[in-house]
């Protein structure tokens, strides 16, 4: 902070204590340089081998890990199959045939009207909503984790309020690691000056749960009791996988 106004005393006190202790060991300018370099590099640390598979294997690992975390997964061939897959899942699970979906252009494009018995409304979640449908930013194979981002057309409440949450994920959106997810985010969330961090990034691995009573696992604590993932299409070809690294500009 560069303004000339006197610093608030608590801030000055805390930072002063830290500084004087660190100054005894290192030089402030050296610390600034060291932090600046690390922040600019944003270097990935060790990524486990399982987060670095070929695209098709990544999708398979994603599915397996998500299922191990108690999510359910269906794979469909094309985006046009999604509404039918949603209806099928609701029927199979005896869920009411209405969903609240994100007003997300990706989802807008699907042929919802073809599902005559399915009521679909777009918007943020209401407390009465039974099932939500959202689209993912990506899926992370190493732990079967969905990465969802908030935006005008992607309200966060859809991920938490309803009893059941259905997430649509293209197979070519499955990446190996969390780091890949961040890289993808920096490439896609671009503004003139660089990239912009979404207000909320939700990593979701399976449905809500609690083991707070006698360490016995129960699903559906406060968030969705069921998490269903619809994986669309096939993994990207192998040769596309390494493209586009570090093409982003920091803000």
């Amino acid at each position: 902070m560069t303004d000339a106004a006197p610093l608030p005393s608590a801030r000055a006190g805390i930072l002063g204590r830290i500084q004087s202790r660190l100054d005894a060991r290192t030089d402030r300018t050296a610390r600034e340089a060291s932090a600046k370099e690390r922040l600019a590099d944003r270097r990935a640390n060790l990524v486990p081998a399982r987060g670095q598979l070929a695209p098709a294997d990544q999708v398979n690992l994603f599915v397996r890990m998500a299922e191990e975390a108690d999510a359910t997964v269906t794979r469909v061939a094309a985006a046009t199959d999604v509404p039918a897959a949603v209806s099928d899942w609701l029927r199979q699970n005896n869920r009411p045939m209405n969903v609240r979906r994100a007003p997300d252009p990706t989802l807008d494009a699907y042929p919802w009207a073809a599902e005559a018995l399915l009521t679909v409304e777009a918007g943020k979640a209401e407390s009465t909503d039974e099932t939500s449908v959202t689209a993912a930013h990506c899926g992370v194979a190493e732990t079967g984790t969905l990465m969802l981002t908030s935006a005008e057309d992607r309200p966060t409440t859809l991920n938490f309020l309803p009893e059941s949450h259905i997430v649509v994920l293209r197979a070519d959106q499955v990446v190996g690691s969390y780091e890949d997810g961040w890289t993808l985010l920096r490439q896609t969330q671009t503004v003139d000056s660089g990239w912009i961090m979404p207000r909320t990034v939700n990593f979701i691995t399976g449905p809500s749960r609690s083991a707070d009573i006698e360490q016995t696992l129960q699903l559906g604590a406060h968030g969705p009791r069921q998490l269903h993932i619809i994986v669309v299409g096939e993994a990207a070809d192998d040769d596309n996988a390494e493209d586009g690294e570090n093409s982003d500009n920091p803000v």
Binding site: A69, T143, N202
Partner: peptide, 12 residues
């Protein structure tokens, strides 16, 4: 767990 169910990154 391999990963907790919800890891949430909030910005502003």
């Amino acid at each position: 767990q391999e990963m907790s169910v919800y890891t949430t990154v909030s910005t502003g």
